[in-house]
Nucleic acid binder design. Structure first.
Lengths: 189, 189
DNA sequence: ATAATTGGAATGAATATTCATTCGTTAAAA
DNA sequence: TTTTAACGAATGAATATTCATTCCAATTAT
């Protein structure tokens, strides 16, 4: 019987790797460093992951899965604008609460390490907003622009805000409201 | 007297490296490959650059310098909206004309390889738009939101558009107009 | 004009290092 | 006891960097 909480070794490896990867970069985090940070031997990592790339891809997919779960609670009774604002706020709060997730995505989004399969898995995360925007277009609340372009635009705005946020030292409280305002003005009919 | 054009060896190395780096990624382009592509020996590269990271940083700064030069021709006689639209179009055209520059930036923008000095050097490139937006705010054409936030937002929109553009197979001619519309609606008072 | 000398750019094989992965051993569970 | 998991030193492939040598154009001497 242990006195400490039993934690899944795989998860310890994943979270240790996440921190090192974001802080030092992919080049500068050898597997030995991950093992040390996770408090395991190197061999143990290879019991859970066939290689370094798989480990990294698993982190990527894990984050995307969590990101997706942020959108689940849409309240269809609310006005579309409200729903959209809630969506924006949730996704931004999610990354603000998990800066390492954001840094990881920034660093690996364009990397050849991330496989096509992982990317496809990740792509699903916009499905629910897509739906919301379709409804918005039908009601002529949202501009009649191809949805992929609008989705990209929204993604860009979120990215821009988060970069700005993490770049700042002091936090401006009004800024998120401003951002939501700009995004809404951009996409509203 | 040579029949072929004399080309600067350093520039050949830089451009060869740019192509390999964007096509294969940083991990998968050894210095030997760069040397081969540039038609030089490996040692030659080290006559021009102290190490691989410096080479990469120099490419980064070079692109930023070129990017900056795109904005120079503002026509202050024109309405602010027109000037802004021209700016947007120029910067987007610049990257569309140089896809490798965009790919390079996508891959290295968040990398720890890029030094703080290089980033600071690169940051200067928004100075002229900054100025334009200040004027726009004074005339109450542009929203009274902190300029850094607006600038980030614009950056995000540009990024989103370019990602979308390179992602697409067929080119939609209306899309840039839509994008400009969204950005302007976002920032206008 | 021709030959001799020189400075430094170019070279790439050799070196040193880094690091992903393996595997034989040990420890813990069942 | 047998099975399973953990371990990390050893391995070797990959590759960044070095440096002794070659080569060539420009300069100087004959």
């Amino acid at each position: 019987m242990h006195l400490y909480l039993h934690v899944n070794k795989k998860e310890v490896i994943l979270s240790s790797a996440l921190i090192l990867l974001t802080e030092k970069g992919v080049h500068n985090t050898p597997m030995s460093a991950i093992a040390k940070a996770a408090g395991t031997g190197m061999g143990t990592i290879y019991n859970y992951f066939p290689n370094k790339e798989s480990l990294i891809n698993e982190i990527y997919v894990n984050i995307k899965v969590k990101e997706k779960s942020v959108f689940l609670d849409f309240d269809v009774e609310q006005p579309i604008k409200t729903q959209f604002e809630n969506y924006l706020r949730s996704i931004i709060d999610f990354f603000i609460a998990n800066p390492a997730y954001f840094k990881f995505m920034e660093q690996l989004q364009a990397s050849p390490i991330i496989t096509k399969e992982s990317r496809e898995e990740g792509g699903k995360s916009v499905a629910s907003v897509h739906e919301l925007l379709v409804k918005g277009q039908q009601e002529r609340i949202i501009k009649a622009i191809e949805l992929d372009e609008i989705l990209m635009f929204i993604g860009g705005a979120i990215l821009a805000y988060l970069r700005w946020y993490f770049h700042q030292s002091e936090t401006k409280t009004t800024s998120l409201k401003n951002q939501a305002q700009m995004v809404w003005d951009a996409i509203k009919e």
